[in-house]
């Protein structure tokens, strides 16, 4: 199967792509930390790409909705995906490891950042990971995690549980893994 690289390595290097690789941008987190990143990696975020195109960057791009810790993670992701010669398989492995060690709270921070920065691949990966972590959890765990208060009476809840009792088989403990 032919692979499509975003940044093909070869003789016919697009001069514009080359320029993006050498140009660096500075991203500023909500808590004031500054991070340097190559433009070619930064524009994997559609939101940043738009800011660069509109030239409203002015050297430093402020990202008031992303804290430093989360931004550092996002940048690690972007750098890997902009890396020359990284195969799809390599990136897939990286994605897997990238999210596997994250706690639920970190996953939430990253999903918010990926959504805000419009980084489709990362958003997809983190959403899937969150779903995977919550699928065997209890209803109570989900309420606590998503800040939801039950508005069912205990009788209503019991009734609904009865209807699909088998769906409650194999519920994990509420300890976050």
């Amino acid at each position: 199967m032919a692979r499509k690289n975003r940044n093909p390595v070869g003789k016919n290097v697009d001069p514009e792509a080359q320029k993006k690789k050498t140009r660096t941008l500075t991203l500023k987190s909500s808590d004031g930390q500054e991070f340097s990143i190559s433009e070619s990696a930064a524009v994997l975020s559609i939101a940043i790409e738009n800011m660069v195109e509109d030239d409203c960057a002015g050297g430093v791009i402020p990202l008031p909705l992303v804290d430093g810790g989360t931004l550092a993670r996002v940048i690690t992701y972007l750098n890997k995906h902009a890396e020359d010669g990284a195969s799809d398989e390599e990136k897939r492995k990286f994605d897997e490891e990238f999210v596997s060690g994250m706690e639920m709270g970190v996953l939430f921070d990253v999903v918010l950042a990926a959504n805000y920065l419009d980084i489709r691949g990362l958003l997809r990966e983190v959403r899937r990971r969150i779903a995977d972590r919550m699928k065997n959890k209890s209803v109570e765990w989900v309420r606590k995690t998503f800040h939801i208060e039950s508005d069912f009476t205990p009788e209503e809840e019991e009734q609904m549980k009865k209807e699909f009792a088998w769906a409650w088989e194999g519920v994990d403990s509420d300890v976050d893994d």
């Binding site: 779903a131 209803v139 989900v142 609904m160 549980k161 088998w166 769906a167 519920v171």
Partner: peptide, 21 residues
């Protein structure tokens, strides 16, 4: 985002999580 996450859950989990709210 919550909806997008729920769309990636298996049906068994969704039947359980109808009880959330």
């Amino acid at each position: 985002i919550i909806m997008q996450i729920l769309l990636r859950l298996p049906v068994k989990s969704l039947l359980k999580f109808r009880c959330v709210s």
